[in-house]
Design a protein around this nucleic acid. Structure first.
Lengths: 339, 339
DNA sequence: TGACACGTTCGAAACGTTTAGATTAGCGTT
DNA sequence: AACGCTAATCTAAACGTTTCGAACGTGTCA
């Protein structure tokens, strides 16, 4: 900018005024300055600007795994929304690890991001302190967090799973297995509640041996399913509370030599683009990814626009059961199915 | 930092020296300063630091579509690599549009990223100028770019497609259709070459009506396939040069009432986690995503570490044909199949 | 005792912007 | 002719760091 000012024989203040339109500058100077900018190929240094202005027009986004198709889609939507608004987004993957998350949030905060969107992990870690001292606005995505009172957009996980399990029960299944991630993240907790409640509503008991834990990865789903299928009284349906794990479930079923849905029914959380096309076409709970991403972006953009005082806003969206052909009615017991 | 210095009754220079370990500071002062840092909860302002140092420890990464599983995986690998190295990554999606890409690169450059990894679009746009004036190192990912001479990691697209088409020809297919994206990005060009060469090697003619263009999206694959299937002399195999488009292909086949692989064989570029599990299990060309991401990251990290003078390094990796069950041998014509 | 070296600490400039307030010029009023 | 008003421009401080070179105190040596 200094060079531009010299070349145009004006002060840097005038150059700045012209660039930002913060004051009127005469036609001749405008002319001279624009010429100089072109000659020199001047680009404003956003770092210097950020230092002075105290805002970076950059936000931080952390998710557990970007390869989980749910997060992929949400990240994509959020990125687009902020791009439209002239913000850059720094993306971090926490790999479902609290320490990593803390470290990455620190990294983002160091870089003075204007806001944070976090699909948190563990108990939230340093997130609590950050929200409390209200330095930067943060919105929680997908997962609420006890003790962290801030803008949030989550799914109604309980009722989504309730519907799915009820669907299976109505098909006549009595032994419905459930594969879940750890309960310390809220969706897993809420989904389990939906499972429990649905069984109860259907007059079925919750049996411990039918509930298995995994750590969100394909291999965990595989192992869990192997255990389930080797029970003396094998389940007739399996619901996986997480998408990557269901791949493991399908592989285990294949490896053991069973067929889905003829021998065993399968449904899972989170839809993906292929589910329509390949066999079996998986029955899934689809999250409104577009809406989730947009709402999260909007909540944060609203804070960034200056609305700091409003009390935390908690949005809860509804999932949708996508019934396809991976679940069979069970013999004569099947009742009428409510879609 | 000023506050810390005051609280510890030292100068900011000393605080800086301690934090960065750039000079020895006595035990008492160390003690006082560390205490003050803790008391105040001081965090270094990376923006101010960047301004002074001229480096942001941030890189920019642009891809056409993050929801394309190939890019999802590569982004994930790259993100991890830079995270380990203490860099933040700003992610942008160009949506396969040159103007968007130019805009986003400008956005990233404004923010003084230390380097750029670009899966470019169109003819490269402002990329050329950036590489020429060598302000920031850039590595090209997945796609080379005429006139942009810089570090690059790409797949050997020609031979990957050559192998796939040869495989189909060896199965006895004579009418092998090909769905491609626009040739102005290099992989599409090279893949087409592989198609042509393989047909020729198999003694088959390239027929224009069997080559269809689409714009990388599912719907394009759908339309292209619909056209192919309504030819009087229908192809017996379809190869899709892009992953999202193959979903459209499968939907079209289903909608028209055909079965894959019994009625028509299908193969495509880019592997995805589900391909093993669902029917038909798609035969695909798998890219070594892990290696691609790591190599790209390494090339850039090497430049960032100061190796600016080395001539552009061009890496070409090999794809791998994953033979599954979406391609049938064609009647008695089938020859022995080379895996 | 003075000169010198060494280890520690500090003052101040610099990075590239923005912006408040000062200055200047031009013009119309009285 | 002196005055005030407005519009255009400029000066200089500030943002929070890093770093160069100077300053200071202490001990060693001649």
């Amino acid at each position: 900018m200094l060079h531009v000012a010299e070349a145009a024989r004006v002060s840097v203040a005038t150059v700045s005024a012209l660039i930002n339109g913060t004051a009127t500058v005469s036609p001749e100077l405008t002319q001279r300055i624009e010429q100089a900018i072109r000659d020199i190929g001047y680009k404003r240094n956003a770092i210097a600007r950020s230092l002075k202005m105290g805002t970076t027009r950059t936000i931080g986004l952390t998710v557990p795994h970007i390869t989980n198709p749910f997060f992929t889609d949400v990240v994509s939507v959020i990125q687009q929304a902020f791009d439209r608004a002239g913000y850059a987004v720094m993306l971090c993957c926490t790999d479902e690890d609290l320490n990593t998350q803390d470290e990455q949030i620190r990294l983002l905060l160091d870089r003075m991001v204007d806001g944070l969107i976090v699909a948190r992990v563990g108990d939230g870690g340093i997130l609590k302190g950050i929200v409390e001292q209200a330095d930067v606005p943060v919105v929680l995505l997908d997962r609420v967090c006890e003790g962290v009172d801030t803008d949030t957009v989550v799914l109604d996980n309980r009722s989504a799973v309730f519907d799915a399990i009820t669907y299976l029960a109505n098909l006549g299944h009595r032994r419905i297995a459930y594969i879940t991630g750890s309960f310390d993240i809220s969706p897993m907790h809420d989904r389990m509640e939906g499972y429990r409640d649905a069984l109860q509503a259907a007059g079925l008991a919750v049996e411990d041996e039918l509930v298995r834990f995994g750590n969100f990865h394909e291999v965990d789903g595989y192992n869990a399913t192997m255990q389930l299928l080797s029970l003396r009284d094998r389940p007739t349906a399996i619901f996986s509370a997480n998408n990557p794990m269901v791949i493991g479930t399908m592989k285990a079923i294949r490896d053991i030599g069973l067929r889905c849905p003829e021998d065993i029914s399968v449904a899972c959380f989170d839809d993906f683009p292929w589910s329509d096309v390949f066999q079996p076409q998986l029955t899934t709970v689809a999250q409104p990814v577009q809406a989730i991403g947009e709402q999260a972006a909007n909540l944060l953009l609203d804070r960034l626009a200056g609305n700091r005082e409003a009390p935390p806003r908690k949005l809860m969206l509804k999932g949708r059961l996508m019934i396809r052909n991976s679940c069979h009615p069970l013999g004569a017991i099947a009742r009428s199915v409510s879609a």
